[in-house]
Design a protein around this nucleic acid. Structure first.
Lengths: 230, 230
DNA sequence: CGTATATTTGATCGAGCTCAACCAGCGTGG
DNA sequence: CCACGCTGGTTGAGCTCGATCAAATATACG
């Protein structure tokens, strides 16, 4: 684990609500777990047996239909929380997009612990409310935006979220490496891979972005891009 | 307020976490408020100054774009909670679809109260997690389903949620009155009003449903409808 | 290198959108 | 009571954006 990842997790993860000795207790209940890119932590419909904090890496939350159509419903970064506490079944699969390092807890242990520390539940509630807002914003994109608007929104959102990953919470990054392939971008935006590809090359031709490498994006004209989102 | 509405609110609202005297205190902080159909409680982007519990009626949560495109991101029934506790701005407008009766709280009062009663926060967390799951399920619909699948999903979801409204938590209703017009259905499904209309008449012709009246739907063949969702 | 995988590009098609006309219910006022 | 207009919903015709099908390139990897 890099020091930097360590730093952001300490500062922003829900465990931040705990005192050092409380943290000690929680840590004993937790288990560090490595995932390699592509590996799935648990599946949609599994009953929720574990929760986790992301220490390093990026994961996707996805639901899919019997015929294979898939929708990515969330992308999870270091310090983010994974899983469904307090019973129920998971409404989505969780799969590593990059190699990842997690701190996992048996759900029953976590539930018991959370019940004892309201500050933890409070932090979790805050986070869940933020996720809900993000999900709802994404619903507007999925239901009402055009392919161009979707793609521009995606680039700006990624620039923003990837930019906040470092220690000194820098602003949005103008040049970044995507933790996703084209198919996964399509699954986030509710488009096909071909449409995503065409939109990106169009934006490159128009001088809005550079595509130095299949996983990299550089923003050349942020304002123009911002115009495209709606 | 009908006794029935009273009953479901008592049984299911977050206040259920409170003892009678705690409830008393909370009630003093609250204010009953009537809304008439079409009236907006607060707008997207307002900073969050109040939260509320729905006692009676149905409301929509929606976001929209500068050019007027709108997406409904949630539909709220009696006993549901409205608003963004703990700061931040509202990510969506809240508008009454029918006449409605709410129990509202100044956000600051509610926040203070919630901090004192972890059981309340816990219940709120539970509810928020459920809402998040629902939102994510809806993202699959918006991003990946066809017009027919969207419409079938909508009818079944409405049947389900409207069926649970009564006292004795009956199962899904086979015949119900929508609290929405066609345009609003379109805004939920990410379609146009014309497409919704065509899908409904098609389903009527195929004998899956009846449309006794512009606001009413009767399900004739639930299994066939269930097939259509995917 | 050669083979497998990811992406781009091209050509065509069709689901759902747009634009436009029509219709049904319904409250209002003559 | 009935003509009238208004609102909300349906139906039709044509078009467009994004999907689909197909092929050509990159890129990764043994």
């Amino acid at each position: 684990m890099s020091d930097c990842a360590n730093c952001i997790v300490r500062n922003q993860a829900i465990c931040g609500a705990l005192s050092p000795d409380e943290l000690e207790i929680l840590n004993k209940a937790g288990r560090k777990q490595r995932l390699t890119a592509g590996q799935t932590l648990f599946w949609e419909g599994d009953d929720s047996l574990l929760v986790a904090n992301v220490i390093e890496g990026v994961l996707k939350l996805s639901t899919s239909m019997a015929d294979g159509r898939e929708q990515i419903v969330g992308v999870v970064f270091p310090s983010d929380f994974i899983g469904r506490p307090f019973g129920g079944v998971s409404s989505h699969s969780v799969t590593a997009l990059t190699d990842a390092y997690l701190c996992t807890f048996a759900r029953s242990d976590f539930d018991r612990f959370a019940a004892q520390y309201p500050a933890l539940e409070r932090k979790l509630l805050d986070r869940t409310l933020t996720e809900l807002d993000r999900a709802r914003k994404w619903m507007l994109l999925l239901g009402r935006k055009t392919a161009t608007e979707k793609t521009a929104s995606f680039i700006l959102e990624m620039s923003d979220r990837l930019g906040r990953q470092g220690c000194e919470s820098e602003g949005p990054a103008d040049s970044f490496l995507l933790p996703l392939g084209r198919q996964q971008i399509a699954d986030i935006l509710g488009l096909t891979i071909e449409t995503v590809s065409r939109q990106l090359t169009k934006m490159k031709q128009d001088g809005l972005i550079e595509l130095p490498d299949r996983r990299a994006i550089t923003i050349r004209d942020r304002d123009a891009l911002q115009m495209q989102v709606a």
